[in-house]
Design a protein around this nucleic acid. Sequence first.
DNA 1: GACTTTTGATACAGCTATGTCTAAAATGAT
DNA 2: ATCATTTTAGACATAGCTGTATCAAAAGTC
Lengths: 179, 179
Amino acid sequence: MERDAIQDIAIKTLITNNGASMHDIAVAAGIGRTTLHRYFASRDDMLRALLLSAFQDIEQAMTECQIETGTALEALERIITVLMPIGHRFTFLLGAWPFAEDNKELKSRELRLLYQLEGLVQRGQKEKSLRTDLPVRWIIDTMTALLFMAWQRISDGYIAPRDASKLIMTTLLTGVGTH
Amino acid sequence: MERDAIQDIAIKTLITNNGASMHDIAVAAGIGRTTLHRYFASRDDMLRALLLSAFQDIEQAMTECQIETGTALEALERIITVLMPIGHRFTFLLGAWPFAEDNKELKSRELRLLYQLEGLVQRGQKEKSLRTDLPVRWIIDTMTALLFMAWQRISDGYIAPRDASKLIMTTLLTGVGTH
DNA sequence: GACTTTTGATACAGCTATGTCTAAAATGAT
DNA sequence: ATCATTTTAGACATAGCTGTATCAAAAGTC
């Protein structure tokens, strides 16, 4: 089995039960615990690798979006669309991120990513498509929150994956009120 | 120390580090581990008690809102306002809820609560203040997601507690776009 | 089929967390 | 101050998890 595939299963297992043991994760991956230890020297190593892997996937997804291209709203929609299929990585990252406190490289890459998103929101504000009376960070948070929630509902089967992006975009931009 | 106070500290400790040991929680509460065991016969007992306590607080907060009174939007704003000060309980519940799977009573009470919220949203739709083209459950999810995110930001110090309700309401109802 | 490599079950040692108990210390009541 | 009650530190036993090592079985290669 490929290391990437194991990482994927480990992430999915840990977001369901974040107390899952190495044995649990090995079972989920259909391999022996010894073999899991061959891929990751320790649980700590594994968690670090998962954090990095999840983050890298999101970074890459963001890069593929080419957020400088087109309008801010178009870029936002692209971001949402590419993050949806990796919602489990996103969810894992939300839960595990507090434990990345001492990883300076990851933290600085996070800041870079956040900086890009802030730039994008500010561009939307300049383009007069995003409100200027809300904090930039809160706009990003709102999108994050909706992504997270949509992923939960996809996992529950309440939302169809193909409806998610549109649903998030419309909720994000126009809210649930009739104003 | 009162049992309620210990429960509060346990919840706050566990949302920060959900792997916190009984020793960690006892330290946070300023009591001995033995004493903690006097309040809760086992870790399992404690987690069950915390789940129930968190849920009850939210139930009570919802009851105090008298959601049948006034317009749906007024009731929604009241809900958000009363849930904010107990955001840590809300956050704990979001994280711990998957582990309440076998608690039939809690699950049925959750359904009752959800039913009330659905009724409220439907009332808002009838009053023409909430959109009818979005799933009712998704409207509730959006509010939940924003509550959760606002609580995180209050904990970070990015949002002032007194701004939170207004921020959530405006984001929820009109979104972040200028439409 | 023969050989090599990989895998996994198993055993073991060490560690941590949990639950239980005891006796001393601390606290509260009078 | 005395007595009663509560709390705590520490000890202990146990279970579970982790990391490590061994060796037979399984899988892969030629």
